[in-house]
Amino acid sequence: MKVAVLQFPGSNCDWDAEHAVRDVLGISAHRVWHKDSLPGETEAVIVPGGFSFGDYLRCGAIARFSPITNDLKKFAENGGQVLGICNGFQILCEAGLLPGALIRNECMEFRCLNQSLKVEQSNERFNPTTLGATLSLPIAHGEGNYRVKDSILTEIEDHGLVFLRYLENPNGSMNDIAGLRNREGNVYGMMPHPERAVESYHPSLDGLSVLKAFFAPLLSSRAVELSSKG
């Protein structure tokens, strides 16, 4: 086991995430049910998109109380690599692994489209040199409007924690934030779906570079020959 893709009741991007990691990137990946423990050999975790627990109460609010979320917190606190996508981003915020919260889109509509994104100079893995200046990735959410108090927003910007911004803001998100990491650089959350942009029949292949950047620590330690795709 290398990559664990968490599965909550209502997750619906879990198979896609597993496919992208295992079949496209060639990294061993397995889905792990939310009531099970995180396997000891886990080297990275993806919290996939969907509607965990039906989005009841608030998006991601109930998933925070699943047994696996405790394991996830410990894993992250020990420096483990974590990527939350869409609902996974909402769960990471609810669990306190990333600051802020994602509320209803300002336009009140569910937005489902290929979104243009600007890559920010965030760290050695996520920057315009490794990812390209702009990306096109699918988004599909009703609650992607990132909110946080001003003092924390200033801190986020001062430390370059935003790694992706919307080029035409689809949801009212503060500072056009589409993807955010923690200061330690091991927890990443993003509303766009990289796992839906990895095959030639997908609207773009830009998800590959995002996933490769995320898995860079795993890949470099093993000299895995990456597919030339993308």
Binding site: I103, R104, N105, E106, C107, M108, N145, R147, K149, G172
Partner: peptide
Amino acid sequence: SPKSTVLDPQGAAV
């Protein structure tokens, strides 16, 4: 209720 400092898109629509 949504914090007074946080924008409330649902409230705005209503």
